[in-house]
């Protein structure tokens, strides 16, 4: 299956929804959307419009296929890495073996949830068109990309969670994957000599887009800059979401 078509489809789903509802801002829409009670206790025209626009299954399928695409990427990355003689040695095999196990489990889980609507596995180019030519020959490059994929995964799930607010079981499953990606990310970061948490938008050599916006210090309009707390901690304490569009920009070079 051609992944570009899938991605185009995904974006089309969004733009349709926003076109239909362009009188409300994205943020307002989410807030209104969040008032699930509205559709039950006090039906309104808007709530009804939202229900139609966000036909639950379409949104869920969209989010899950997006997630599945990222999980395919991670799973294959670790599958190839673990199978490449001499690339990952000694104790690091514990780390990447665990990551491999989890990402393959995520793929299987998402595929089982999606059933016939699951997208097929794309073909990957982990050199990113030559940007990382030694990805499977040089452990440092491999670990760098592992960090980039894991931290991107954390941000991607975080960005999609609000879209699942209407579907508790799926939301909870996504959150349960999200925190595992964060465990992974922290471990890979430490293995590379970084802190497990993200300071500012420091990329540690990864593509800067992976960490763009991570330096945010405002959350629901509350500042996390606090007297006596280092700036570093004020940013480390808060992971930031990425939109699907921004995630796809990061991931696209790794797709054939």
């Amino acid at each position: 299956m051609n992944l570009q078509n899938i991605l185009n489809e995904i974006e089309q789903v969004d733009s349709e929804v926003y076109d239909r509802l362009k009188h409300v801002s994205r943020r307002n829409m989410f807030s209104m959307f969040a008032k699930k009670a509205a559709s039950v206790a006090a039906p309104t025209l808007l709530a009804s419009a939202l229900n139609k626009a966000y036909a639950q299954s379409d949104v869920v399928v969209d989010v899950l296929n997006f997630a599945l695409t990222l999980e395919y990427l991670e799973a294959e990355f670790y599958n190839v890495g673990m199978d490449t003689p001499g690339l990952i040695i000694n104790l690091d095999r514990n780390v990447f073996g665990q990551l491999q196990k989890h990402e393959n489990a995520h793929v299987n889980l998402l595929k089982s949830v999606l059933g016939g609507r699951a997208v097929s596995k794309p073909r990957f180019d982990f050199t990113a068109k030559g940007a990382f030519p030694d990805v499977f020959r040089n452990f440092k490059t491999f670990a760098l990309l592992a960090q980039a994929f894991e931290d991107t995964g954390v941000r991607a799930y975080k960005g999609q969670a609000p879209r699942l607010i209407m579907d508790d079981p799926i939301l909870t499953t996504a959150l349960r994957i999200h925190s595992v990606e964060a465990r992974h990310a922290a471990r890979v970061r430490e293995l590379r000599g970084l802190k497990g948490w993200i300071t500012g938008n420091e990329s540690g050599g990864a593509p800067p887009a992976v960490y763009a916006g991570e330096e945010a210090v405002t959350h629901l309009e509350v500042s996390s800059l606090i007297p006596g707390v280092p700036y570093s901690a004020s940013t480390e304490a808060w992971d930031e979401p990425l939109s699907k569009e921004d995630v796809l920009k990061i991931v696209m070079p790794f797709l054939e």
Binding site: F30, K35, L171, G196
Partner: peptide, 30 residues
């Protein structure tokens, strides 16, 4: 936090809880 996400009704609150939970998971990992 993973369990509480589904209890929230406002997407902004959910998004913000999401910004914290992954940091808690990083702590656990470290």
């Amino acid at each position: 936090y993973n369990g509480a996400g589904q209890l929230l009704t406002d997407a902004n609150n959910l998004a913000t809880a999401g910004k914290i939970v992954s940091v808690e998971a990083r702590h656990a990992s470290v």
